[in-house]
Simulated scan of single mutants.
Amino acid sequence: MMSFSETFHKMQELFYELSSKINSYTCTCGRKMDINADSSHKTRESSVDKQSLFGQRHQDGEEERILQLEGERNALNDHCKKLKHEITEKEQRILRLEKDLLEKDRSEIQMRKSLQKYEEEVSKMKTVVTNREENIRHLEELRKEDKRKIEKLTIDTRSQNVFQELNEELRITKDRCKSLETQIEKCNRKEVVLGFHTTLVPTMSSLIFNGLMKHLEDRLAEENVDLVRRPYTGKVPFNYPLLAVCVNVSRIAADAKEALRGVTEVGNCKDIALLVFHHKDVHALPSQTSDKILTGTEFSHVGLILDFAFLTNRGIYNCELNTLGIERIVTFLLQYKTRK
């Protein structure tokens, strides 16, 4: 079966052969028939050929034959165009197939690379499996060895009972030691009884007292000391450290006198620690401490005067002033520690 290109070339040869026959055709009168001659030449031939009826009829027959051949040539031209169109489509399809083949070649290369990578992974996994199998064999040998040891130990039932008794005695001894450690720790642990005094409103005093207690309890716990808070209502004698809380809202001397009102007359002033709280952020705190300002006789016998900073929304916040104040209060309170 011929291909499209061979068929096309064959049709072209037939077309050229047919055109050659048409152009070289010679009528019976001895004149060559040329379908491409100009109109003037045809007119002259026509005037000459009209001289005889036989020539006229013969010329009509030749013209019909020429027209028939031209029709065949046109048909062959159309068929050639159709074949060219089909050839063009086939060439485009071949290009598409070549493109698809190229893509498949690329995919095949990628798949080969993936396969090679997969084979490498399989080789690695085989190595891992081999190592693990070796480990399993080693562990199995150890298990068998342990089993032999256990069987050897279980032969002597008496020795096993002795071992259990020793374990029970060891457990009892550990419990007794733990109980003794607890008692020793309890005997060594000490406590400090502490009182608070303030003239602030309950909401403000709770904010300050709760924060201060949290800081003091955490710090005294490091010293193995418990803090015991004792309520103080004022104008009652006391024999334990008392923290008098003052919030600086106007003049510091007036605020401090108000905070100490009713307590300096009924107790030992050396047991009183006056705490001056400043409701300010760290950058706005006073540069001079309160003990440098409160130098009057009414403050000279107070055991300790300290400054602290707090904010309503943050309480006693972390800063150098508060850290130093907590450490000085702890030092002050440790003088009063007693056994529980």
Rank of each mutant, 00 (worst) to 15 (best):
V249E: 15
V247G: 08
L243T: 06
R251F: 11
H283K: 15
A259S: 12
N268I: 09
L243E: 01
K257R: 15
L260A: 02
L274R: 05
V282D: 14
D255K: 02
G267Y: 05
I272Y: 01
T264C: 08
V263R: 03
K280G: 01
V247H: 04
H279Y: 11
F277K: 04
N268V: 10
L260S: 07
T264R: 06
L274P: 03
D271P: 03
C269T: 13
N248C: 15
F277W: 08
T264L: 08
I272W: 02
L260H: 02
L275K: 04
V282N: 15
V245D: 04
D255I: 07
K280E: 14
R251W: 10
H283N: 14
E258D: 11
E258N: 12
V245F: 01
I272A: 04
V249P: 00
V245E: 01
E258S: 12
G267F: 01
L274V: 05
V247A: 02
A259G: 05
K280M: 12
V276T: 11
A254H: 09
I252G: 03
V276Q: 04
C269F: 01
A254Q: 13
N268Y: 06
D281P: 05
A244I: 02
V276D: 05
A273N: 06
R261Q: 12
V247M: 02
N268G: 05
R251Q: 14
H283Q: 14
H279T: 10
L274D: 02
A253E: 15
F277V: 09
K270S: 13
G262Y: 03
A244M: 03
K270F: 11
K280F: 07
H278Y: 15
A256D: 07
A256L: 06
A253D: 15
F277C: 09
E258L: 12
L260V: 08
H283P: 04
V245I: 15
H279I: 06
D271T: 12
K270D: 12
C269H: 10
K280V: 15
L274I: 10
D271H: 14
A273G: 08
L243F: 12
V276N: 10
A254G: 02
G267Q: 07
S250L: 09
C269E: 08
R261V: 00
V276M: 13
D271E: 12
H283C: 09
D281V: 11
N248I: 12
H279K: 13
K257L: 13
S250P: 03
V263W: 01
F277M: 03
H279N: 15
V247R: 00
N248K: 13
R251V: 07
H278G: 03
I252W: 02
G267C: 05
G267T: 06
H278E: 13
S250N: 14
V266M: 04
H279P: 06
V282S: 15
C269P: 10
A244R: 00
D281L: 09
H283E: 15
V249C: 08
V266G: 04
S250E: 10
V247S: 01
F277Y: 10
H278L: 09
L275W: 07
L274Y: 05
A273T: 01
K280Q: 13
L243W: 01
D281H: 12
H283F: 13
E265F: 07
V263H: 00
D271S: 10
